[in-house]
């Protein structure tokens, strides 16, 4: 079942991605001001959405863990956090490539860049925290508390840094920026394969966590014999 889900997600993601790439590269025209590099937005923005979806899912799973104390929720939380972190990194890297070409610099302490970096650091801290705890129950509990705090913190970070400064082009969502409908639909269409890919990665990661738990249980059993 799990394998079928993973393979299914991957195949669907590959087909959609091939179709989207074809439309993106051959059918959609260049953006007037930015030229061909504009297309990076079709990965840049959906990657951020996928990352945030992962972090919210992790917070929900963490809350459920604290209520139910079932390690499966913990496995889910760590899996989606890791996938979210990977997509956040993809968002940062694609943003930097775009900035190098349009702004002429790799990095600037603009609001959204800084916020995403802080967000990335927070969840990297989550993974480091997990590595520092040995006992699975304690690890799950500590990580769950931290994940909830981080999830509440991220919107505040975004607001505060936005007040601090802003240079980023007006965000396409909730902002004054305008975009052609053809670009718009591509933005959402390309989110689907990224989400499917994230889902497959998370499913693989959950399987690893489960096998890890089984291994640990077997090891404890072997020591007790």
């Amino acid at each position: 079942m799990r394998v079928k889900l993973i393979v299914g997600c991957c195949i669907a993601a590959a087909v959609l991605l091939a179709r989207n790439l074809y439309v993106m590269l051959l059918e959609l025209p260049d953006e007037v001001a930015q030229g061909p590099i504009f297309r990076i937005i079709f990965f840049h923005v959906p990657a951020a959405w996928t990352a945030f979806a992962g972090f919210v899912a992790a917070a929900v799973a963490s809350a459920l863990y604290l209520v139910r104390r079932d390690l499966r929720y913990d496995a889910f939380a760590v899996a989606v956090t890791e996938v979210g972190l990977a997509f956040a990194a993809a968002n940062l890297v694609t943003g930097m490539i775009w900035a190098r070409i349009i702004w002429g610099i790799w990095w600037t302490w603009d609001a959204r860049l800084t916020s995403m970096l802080v967000c990335w650091l927070l969840y990297a801290g989550y993974l480091m925290l997990r590595h520092a705890v040995e006992e699975p129950g304690q690890r799950a509990r500590i990580a769950a508390v931290f994940s909830l705090l981080a999830c509440v913190d991220v919107p505040i970070v975004f607001f505060s840094i936005r007040w601090w400064r802003t240079q980023h082009p007006q965000p396409v969502v909730w902002g004054g920026g305008s975009m052609d409908p053809a670009y718009w639909s591509m933005l959402f269409l390309n989110w689907i394969p990224l989400l499917l890919l994230g889902l497959a990665m998370a499913a693989i990661r959950i399987g690893q966590e489960r096998r890890q738990r089984e291994l640990e249980a077997l090891r404890r059993l072997a020591y007790s014999l």
């Binding site: 480091m128 913190d153 505040i156 970070v157 607001f159 840094i161």
Partner: peptide, 16 residues
């Protein structure tokens, strides 16, 4: 671990 975890969370407060 403590400063590593606390400072990023506190960024909005530190800024303000």
């Amino acid at each position: 671990m403590l400063p590593l975890l606390v400072y990023p969370v506190l960024i909005p407060v530190l800024l303000g």
